[in-house]
């Protein structure tokens, strides 16, 4: 910064005797301190503790805490509920993110199109994002209810379908993923909209002169231009949704059986039964999955990010 070039400051201050550079370092440290303290206290430190706990047999109700090495991990590798929860979590995250991006891209085009209600559409697309997940989950649980729900009723009347949703293991998964797509697609669309607005219209004009129709300009112009944003957003959604808790917890409670139990709910259940060591080891597995997803995303980002 050019300010550092300035020699003697004219003002007196508590930093007297320090060089200008030292003074800046001190200010930087002071400014960063609250943020770093918060993160260390609630993230980095508990993370280290989680790693430690995952090697322990630790349940406050059954005292002697004991080092068991990878014992917890051996146990969870054989735990059918953990396996099912990892399976459903990955399915949930991958399918959700895929459709959120596909529908989000379509919706972003609508939000970018020149028509009179465009701003209304943009405001409306904030609503699913801003609505508490608690309410979305409970609302849809009611809407999918077998007795009193409106969605089965409408499907029955219009399509003649007689589907049971939340009490059927497969359909419950479909319903939860659908609600999640409903909840976050507009958010993805708003992010992609910002990307769309960054593409010069002259490019579309040029493509049109060269004889491109809407599909070819989408395929060879829009999507390549948006690729960096699509990958960042996709990565963000994957990582963020891996920790999903409230939606399945409130919509089905993880049931029927354990068909819609996600990893986060399994951790919650184990910590509620005071199996702290075991819960921590599932947490470690979750962090590993997040790291893998992040690494793949970073790799893709480097490959596609030609613009920068």
């Amino acid at each position: 910064m050019t300010t550092q070039v300035l020699s003697k400051p004219r003002f007196r201050n508590p930093f007297a005797g320090m060089t200008l550079r030292q003074r800046f370092y001190l200010i930087a440290v002071l400014l960063l301190l609250p943020a770093i303290a918060l993160r260390v206290f609630t993230s980095f430190y508990p993370f280290i503790q989680t790693l430690y706990l995952s090697t322990q047999r630790f349940n406050p109700a059954y005292p002697p805490q004991k080092f068991i090495g990878l014992g917890n991990f051996e146990r969870l590798a054989d735990d059918p509920v953990v396996q099912a929860s990892i399976g459903f979590t990955v399915l949930f995250v991958v399918v959700s993110t895929f459709f959120q991006i596909v529908f989000g891209l379509a919706l972003a085009h609508l939000l970018n199109a020149p028509f009179r209600l465009r701003n209304v559409a943009r405001t409306l697309s904030l609503i699913p994002w801003a609505i508490p997940m608690v309410i979305a989950a409970l609302g849809f649980r009611w809407l999918f209810d077998d007795q009193f729900g409106m969605i089965p009723d409408v499907l029955r009347r219009v399509l003649g379908m007689d589907t049971r949703w939340l009490i059927d293991p497969q359909n419950a998964k479909v319903a939860i993923i659908a609600v999640n797509i409903w909840k976050s697609t507009p958010f993805v669309a708003l992010v992609l909209l910002a990307g769309l607005q960054g593409i010069s219209r002259d490019l579309y004009e040029a493509a049109r002169v060269d004889g491109a129709n809407w599909f070819t300009s989408l395929r060879y112009l829009t999507i390549p231009m948006l690729m960096p944003i699509i990958i960042t957003t996709g990565m963000f959604m994957l990582v963020w949704q891996l920790a999903v808790f409230d939606l399945p917890f409130l919509m089905t409670g993880g049931g029927p059986g354990f068909s819609t139990t996600v990893m986060a709910q399994k951790i919650y259940l184990e910590s509620n039964s005071l199996n702290y060591g075991y819960a921590a080891s599932i947490g470690v597995v979750m962090v590993v999955i997040v790291a893998i997803v992040g690494a793949v995303g970073l790799f893709l980002f480097r490959r596609f990010d030609v613009s920068e």
Partner: peptide
Amino acid sequence: VALPQIAVLVPMFQT
């Protein structure tokens, strides 16, 4: 931000 809040829940509760 990528660190899932639920994964570190137990030690956080203890702290």
